[in-house]
Amino acid sequence: MSRVVLVAGASSGIGRAAAVSLAGRGHRVFGSSRGWPGEPPPGVEPVTLDVTDDASVRECVDDVLHRAGRIDVLVYSAGCYVAGAAEETSPALALRQLDAYLLGAHRLVRAVLPAMRRQTAGRLIFMSSSAAVAAIPFHAVYSASKAALEGYVDAVRYEVAPFGVDATCVQGTSVRTGAADAALHAEPLDSYAIARDAVVERFATTQRDGGPPTAFARTITRAVEARRLPPRYRVGIRAKALPALRALLPDAVFRRLFARKFGLPSGK
């Protein structure tokens, strides 16, 4: 069955790949961007959206409803991440991070839910990260925003279930999206320079050298078309193994191993 899908963050990365995949499956796809850098992919209808602006969110959702008459699915894949030590990160920059991944998602949820409740059907699909399972050093506010998003979605699932609406998160690691080149960097302090620079570059490299976003696009497409949604999808072996390792290993052992992964001397 063809569905009307709004993909937030469809101009690049996972959002673009998901929009292309969904359009190829015959769904009517509205792909959002703050400003499309070029022509949208074939089959994707472009809409303008700034997830940090209340008026922009309302106008975007109203536009889709006017043109399609309904919104069956929201796919949230917008945002960028902040790199740097917690001490280096100003409250204003931390708020920008939360605005991108949590508050932006919240704005769109509030905007699409009235239509979904009237339809007594709908799906909310959010791109998360394995950083919600194991926080990444020198990416504290990024990790916190993804963990907050997952807690938010877990609660929303209870609230919207009586209206025929469901929600899920998609976790993964090391995907090539261009996010590393668009990262926001905190104001550096010399005290953190050696460890911070090594970890930030290692994290960025795993993204630049990661796999294409096609596996995530396939998972999002599966979530759009599935009869029922699980609380979360995990894409890739590492994303699937990480929660098990976190649960099975003593915390001190896990932290030492995770610190070693990033070239840090200790995970204490």
Results as ranks from 00 to 15, higher is better:
residue 1 M to H: 15
residue 5 V to W: 05
residue 6 L to V: 11
residue 8 A to F: 11
residue 8 A to G: 11
residue 8 A to T: 09
residue 17 A to S: 06
residue 21 S to Q: 12
residue 25 R to W: 09
residue 28 R to S: 13
residue 29 V to H: 01
residue 29 V to I: 04
residue 32 S to D: 04
residue 34 R to Q: 05
residue 42 P to K: 08
residue 45 E to R: 13
residue 46 P to Y: 01
residue 47 V to W: 12
residue 47 V to G: 01
residue 56 S to Y: 02
residue 56 S to E: 06
residue 62 D to M: 02
residue 69 G to W: 10
residue 71 I to S: 03
residue 76 Y to G: 03
residue 77 S to E: 07
residue 85 A to S: 13
residue 94 A to G: 10
residue 95 L to V: 09
residue 96 R to S: 14
residue 96 R to Q: 13
residue 100 A to K: 01
residue 103 L to G: 01
residue 109 V to L: 12
residue 109 V to T: 12
residue 112 V to Y: 00
residue 116 M to R: 05
residue 117 R to P: 00
residue 118 R to Q: 12
residue 121 A to S: 15
residue 126 F to P: 02
residue 130 S to R: 03
residue 130 S to V: 15
residue 142 Y to C: 06
residue 143 S to M: 14
residue 145 S to N: 07
residue 146 K to M: 03
residue 155 A to K: 08
residue 158 Y to T: 15
residue 164 G to H: 03
residue 176 R to F: 03
residue 179 A to K: 05
residue 183 A to K: 03
residue 186 A to M: 07
residue 187 E to K: 08
residue 188 P to V: 00
residue 197 D to E: 15
residue 197 D to Q: 12
residue 200 V to I: 15
residue 200 V to K: 04
residue 201 E to L: 09
residue 202 R to F: 12
residue 206 T to S: 08
residue 206 T to N: 11
residue 208 R to W: 13
residue 211 G to K: 00
residue 215 A to I: 00
residue 215 A to R: 03
residue 216 F to L: 08
residue 218 R to E: 15
residue 219 T to Y: 02
residue 225 E to Y: 00
residue 227 R to Q: 09
residue 229 L to M: 09
residue 238 R to I: 09
residue 240 K to H: 14
residue 240 K to C: 09
residue 241 A to C: 12
residue 245 L to A: 13
residue 247 A to T: 12
residue 248 L to T: 14
residue 252 A to Q: 14
residue 253 V to L: 13
residue 253 V to W: 14
residue 255 R to L: 13
residue 265 P to F: 04
residue 267 G to Q: 05
